[in-house]
Write a protein that binds this DNA or RNA. Structure first.
Lengths: 231, 231
DNA sequence: ATTTTGGAAATGTGATCACAAAAATCAATA
DNA sequence: TATTGATTTTTGTGATCACATTTCCAAAAT
């Protein structure tokens, strides 16, 4: 039984234990560092983060409601298995959700916030240039999140994050077998469209960003990756 | 402190306590029987369903991850307040999600399943005819759920249900102040389109069903309802 | 009358314990 | 050697308890 490895994570004070457990597990899943099928035990996790079963269970419940984990009939908890079909559904859903989120942000976003997007994008390009995949991934997420949350009444962000979470295991597999993730982004296109307040163009840029980014994997490539991972 | 009223609910055996608590609270929220702002206490709920804090807390965590509940800074838990803006976001999101879910179900649904949709729709019409709003609501949900889950790899259903949950409080308010919910539905249109395997027409029927149903409330009417409820 | 303040009650949180079910281990048998 | 069966260990679950924080309420002060 291999011990669970969990990246330590800063814990702001006032943060409850279950919240901390949730964040730490979530981050691990998001970057694909927990393998589908790997058995997660409550006591194991509690021990790994030096706490007790109660708050860990709360974290696991939340993650299962977010689609990041699946409870089996045995009541065992695991990261859902990835299939080519599921991957396709996730990408299609991601595109629909984020197109919509982007479109509804256009009316609310300020020039100041667009400037912030530019900052994030250049930081991401630098990370890509120095082949720092982890940082690039985080900055890419921050770009999208900053855009979508410009809408103050926005409700969609938790769902977008749920899709990101569910794509995590695929990222993990891809990173293991492909040297580096090919990063195309259409962020500049999105920024230009935002400046012009052209909602359709923004939505289309985000759509292309997703479809040509992680969504660009060919079905054959996906099945190949999954076959490699299975063994 | 008014005691919490919770509809008793059948508990299939093998169902865990936290799961049961989750389902019961979820159903109460979904039909709007818990008012926004009403304070929910863990011990209160535990007492109401004759269990203990631990499983109730797990249920509350799940519901907050599903957007049905919100944890305040006080760590108090409540049903989110409804505003006209939030309502608008929810309806727009609901339309986008369900159009997509419907479209992606078309290729998978069987004639047998379409027959089932017809059954559900006629049962709903009967419920509407006898002014049985609660049953009509449930059957309407079952219609949509049956359609969307025809796609075996579907991933979107939890998100659709999350939106339904978040609309719950509005339903509660509307039911209190409007004698009966005006039920227009475009189900027959959707069924006809399904028989023809016309994905665009299915999506459009679902879109109309949502926009002319609960989404059809005018902004003025919404603000009026919310003002009435506040007092 | 309004505000302040003190303590009592209520509440969220997390650790621990006991129990039952599931999984794993190992010995005995075919 | 493979398989069955019993025992041991592991695991999920939920009740309970102790602690810290917040809320509530009444009495006192301004």
């Amino acid at each position: 039984m291999g011990a669970l490895i969990l990246e330590p994570l800063a814990r702001p004070d006032g943060m409850t234990t279950h919240e901390y457990a949730h964040r730490r597990l979530r981050q691990a899943i998001m970057v694909g560092s927990i393998r589908p099928g790997e058995s997660l035990t409550i006591r194991g996790i509690a021990e790994a983060m030096e706490s007790s079963p109660t708050p860990v269970r709360e974290a696991l419940r939340r993650l299962s409601s977010e689609g990041a984990l699946k409870v089996l009939d045995n009541r065992r908890i695991m990261v859902p298995k990835m299939t080519a079909e599921r991957f396709g559904e996730l990408i299609a859903l991601r595109a629909v959700l984020e197109k919509h989120a982007a479109r509804r942000a256009v009316a609310h976003i300020t020039e100041r916030q667009i400037d912030r997007l530019v900052e994030i994008d250049t930081a991401q390009d630098e990370a890509i240039a120095r082949k720092d995949n982890a940082t690039a991934l985080l900055l890419n997420q921050e770009f999208h999140r900053t855009l979508y949350t410009a809408n103050p009444d926005q409700i969609i962000m938790p769902m977008v994050e749920s899709v990101w979470l569910q794509l995590g295991p695929f990222l993990g597999i891809a990173m293991e077998h492909v040297a580096l993730l090919y990063f195309v982004d259409r962020h500049q296109e999105a920024i230009a469209a935002l400046r012009k307040r052209d909602a359709d163009a923004v939505a289309e840029a985000i759509n292309a960003d997703i479809c040509e980014g992680i969504g660009g994997f060919e079905r054959a490539a996906i099945e190949n990756l999954l076959r490699l991972a299975r063994q």
